[in-house]
Each structure stands twice: as structure tokens, then as C-alpha cells.
Design a protein around this nucleic acid. Structure first.
Length: 425
DNA sequence: TATCGTATCACAC
DNA sequence: CTAACGGTGTGATACGATA
């Protein structure tokens, strides 16, 4: 049976979130910056038209910024996450089968909805999302996730589609003429590297890739590429994942706002990052068996001495206790740290994660101490979730955070903070 | 010989 | 004003070590 899979994607998501609460930037070139105000990660159509590139370092954009009065905003993840939840919740009403694929995208399985006109149904989604959140979205429909992605791309690029493209109602000829005009690099899963390798073999367009011989592709590239080709031909190889599997690894790292030289600042930042990682670990009810820590100087400062090092430390027994995880990470840091370097970034990761309920007691830890740890952690998590992140924290996090990241132009948390609400323009 | 561990690459967003 | 370049996660592959 022909599947109908929809991919809904918010246009220029972060920029669009900012515009909902600040209409004065509605028709202006606007961009949102990565953490630390480092790189461009979201652009309005106006900014794209002026030649601002995705991923470009902010300081390199300054000529264009001054010339055209481009608004550069620090990222505001509290706002984006909340807006994302609203969009996903609205979309969940349109199908019983939803996969939240990223902060601004989800797949819906519309198979079995054929008695409806799916283009009209998709327009209904767009209308409701715009009315209830102020965000513009495009919808692509196809018989596989790869085709739905492609359909969405077509809807975004061609205004005559009015934001919705259903490939399943097009003829073979119509499909071929569309696919013949789309660069192979626009296919989901084909990045810069693979695109250039494909082109070297004469596979330049989506149509070329769709028609490519499956065995040839598998042998020249990989099983992944073979699946992509198969999906382009309408065979489902990538299933909808309605229930997000638990993370296999949890990372927390950040660049510093200023170069850091002293051990204590590094230790404070590592404490903070590990505390965040441990919260995420507990929220998915896992325990970590391995802790990793790393620090490094800036690879972009070519005239400064470089140092980058990390350490992997197995835990005596799997844990989700912030105190133990931090202690382990700091033990690692002590061994990694070298004086007289300008550190630019530090990070931690938790891996070899196992479901908490599968774990047996550690023979060296009493049941009583395990349950004390669990109730302390869950109490801290409850307080922090109610009273605000970081309300209760380890003292080794410090209080001044002179290394904290730069965010010089951040909007209010309009939807998640009372004082942000009051300042809506 | 099959499997493991790990580094590296590639990709998404 | 300075100076300044993200973060999180997955999977494939290559390759030497190990059982």
C-alpha cells in the first residue's frame, strides 16, 4: 500500500520565533547566532538574499551587517523550545502517528487519510499553526521519509506550491521534471562530501540518483546510500520512530566568552556542564558507566600555542549521582590541565548508558546509600524544575562565572518568564 | 577467523 | 572598545588488537 508521509518544517525557525514577539523586525534582514554569538545559524529570507551564509562567523559578517542594517540576535533556546512544543502539540492532532525529528520538524503518517485531500489537509495544518503560534511552516508529502523531505524542500523553494507539495498525486513525468532540476546535494543524507563524489560519477540531480543502479551505488558508496536510492523510488527503508529511543551518549560542552587560563575556572565550568549532563541522564532514567572530559585551546588562533586533550574514565559502578559524576570529571581535569594556555572550550560526556531499572546493586554500596542518593537527586531535580535551572547546585560550580558565554543581544523569554511577557512590544 | 575497541569521517539540524 | 569561528547526536568504516 502507498504510504502518505508528511514532513512539516518551520521556515527559518529561530528567526521566525523572534519575529512573533517583535513585529518590528518582520520585513528586515534578521539572523540568529549560535552560542557565544559565534556563527550564523538562522537567517531570514532577506538576510539570505543579501548573501549572509549559513555557519558564517558573525565577526566576518560585519561589513554586510553595517551596510544593510542586519539585526543579529543571540540565540534564545528557552523561547525556541517552548514554541517548538506548541507546534508539535498542534500537529499531533492531525495524525495518531508523529515523529518529532528535530526542534522545528516532524513527520506525520497520513496513511489511511486518503479520503481527504491531503493538500487541503496540509493547508489546514499551516493555517492552524500560523493562527495559534504565528509561525510559518511548509508541508511535504511523499511515500517515504526521504521523499517527504524532498517534497518539503520543493514546497519551500517554489512559491507556486503555496507551502504544500504532495508528490504522491503527481504523474511520473511531473516527478521526473521536478527531480531533474534539483541538485543531488539537496537529498536528505547527502552532504557536501557525498554530493561531490556523486557528481564525479555523473550523478548530478535527484533524478540521476533515483535512476542509479542500486547495486552499483552500494558498491561505490555504502548501504546508507543504497537506502537513499531505494527511498527515492518509494520503498520504505527508514521507518517512522514515534518513540524517541533513549540517548546512547550525553554531551555537554561550551565555548568560553573569554580565554580561560586558571584551573579553578575550568573546574567550575566542568562542574556546570556535568551537572547539566547528569540532569539529562536522570530524565531519561539511565545510568552512565563512562565519563569523558576534555579541554582545548582555540584551533582558530594559529599564532597561539595549541593544546587539546581529553580523558575517558570508567566508573567503578554505573551512576546518575551528580556528585560522583562531577568528582570523576574533576579528577580527570586535574590530570589534563596544563598551565599557560588560553583555553577556549571545555566539555564532558556520559556514555555506556544503561537503563536504570536493569541495573543490579553495587556490591560495595548499600541499598540504603543508593536510595539516599536517588532521593537527593530527585529532590534537587524537582526544585530546579520548579524554581528555575541551577537554583540548587554544587558549590564547585562557583558563583561569578567570568568565563560565561557571550550573549549580547538576546530577546526576552516571552513565553516562559513573567518579566519577559511584560515587555512584549 | 570473528569480534572487539577506537579513531575518524560524514551527516543532520 | 577589544576580539572574535556552535553544540548535540547518530551511524559507517577502517584498522589493529584480542579471543
Amino acid at each position: 500500500m502507498m504510504r502518505n508521509i508528511a514532513l512539516i518544517d518551520v521556515n527559518n525557525f529561530y528567526v521566525s520565533c523572534e519575529r512573533v514577539f517583535n513585529p518590528s523586525i518582520k520585513d528586515k534582514p534578521v539572523i540568529v547566532l549560535s552560542n557565544n554569538d559565534g556563527c550564523v545559524i538562522s537567517r531570514s529570507n532577506e538576510a539570505k538574499a543579501l548573501g549572509i551564509k549559513m555557519g558564517e562567523p558573525w565577526f566576518k559578517c560585519q561589513d554586510l551587517v553595517k551596510k544593510y542594517d542586519i539585526q543579529g540576535l543571540s540565540s534564545n533556546y528557552a523561547l525556541y523550545a517552548d514554541m517548538s512544543n506548541r507546534v508539535m502539540s498542534i500537529l499531533s492532532d492531525f495524525s495518531p502517528h508523529q515523529e518529532v525529528y528535530s526542534i522545528d520538524e516532524c513527520f506525520l503518517d497520513l496513511t489511511g487519510f486518503e479520503k481527504k485531500n491531503l493538500v487541503e489537509y496540509s493547508q489546514e495544518m499551516r493555517g492552524r499553526i500560523f493562527k495559534w503560534t504565528g509561525l510559518p511552516v511548509c508541508v511535504g508529502v511523499g511515500s517515504t521519509k526521504t521523499l517527504a523531505k524532498l517534497a518539503n524542500h520543493i514546497a519551500k523553494k517554489n512559491s507556486q506550491f503555496d507551502g504544500v507539495c504532495n508528490l504522491n498525486v503527481l504523474t511520473e513525468d511531473q516527478l521526473n521534471s521536478l527531480f531533474g532540476n534539483i541538485d543531488v546535494g539537496d537529498v536528505w543524507g547527502v552532504g557536501r562530501r557525498l554530493a561531490s563524489q556523486l557528481k564525479a560519477l555523473g550523478i548530478n540531480t535527484v533524478l540521476d540518483l533515483k535512476k542509479a543502479d542500486s547495486e552499483y551505488v552500494r558498491q561505490q558508496f555504502s548501504i546508507v546510500m543504497a537506502k537513499i536510492v531505494s527511498e527515492l523510488n518509494g520503498n520504505v527503508c527508514i521507518e517512522l520512530e514515534e518513540i524517541a529511543p533513549p540517548r546512547k551518549q550525553i554531551l555537554s560542552s561550551r565555548s568560553f566568552g573569554y580565554p580561560v587560563r586558571d584551573y579553578h575556572s575550568l573546574a567550575e565550568s566542568i562542574t556546570l556542564y556535568m551537572s547539566r549532563a547528569a540532569e539529562k541522564l536522570r530524565s531519561q532514567e539511565s545510568l552512565a558507566s563512562v565519563v569523558q572530559v576534555y579541554i582545548r585551546t582555540s584551533p582558530f588562533k594559529l599564532n597561539e600555542p595549541q593544546y587539546s586533550n581529553g580523558m575517558t574514565i570508567p566508573l567503578p559502578s554505573p551512576s546518575d549521582d551528580t556528585r560522583q559524576l562531577v568528582k570523576t570529571a574533576l579528577w580527570g581535569l586535574k590530570h589534563l590541565y596544563k598551565r599557560d594556555f588560553n583555553y577556549a572550550k571545555a566539555g564532558v560526556s556520559l556514555s555506556e548508558l544503561i537503563p536504570k531499572k536493569l541495573i543490579q546493586f553495587d556490591m560495595f554500596e548499600s541499598a540504603q546509600s543508593a536510595s539516599r542518593s536517588a532521593s537527593l537527586m530527585s529532590t534537587i531535580d524537582r526544585i530546579n524544575s520548579k524554581m528555575g535551572r541551577g537554583r540548587i547546585k554544587l558549590a564547585s560550580e562557583g558563583f561569578s562565572r567570568p568565563w560565561k558565554m557571550k550573549q549580547e543581544n538576546q530577546s526576552q523569554r516571552y513565553t516562559t518568564n513573567w518579566s519577559g511577557l511584560i515587555s512584549v512590544k
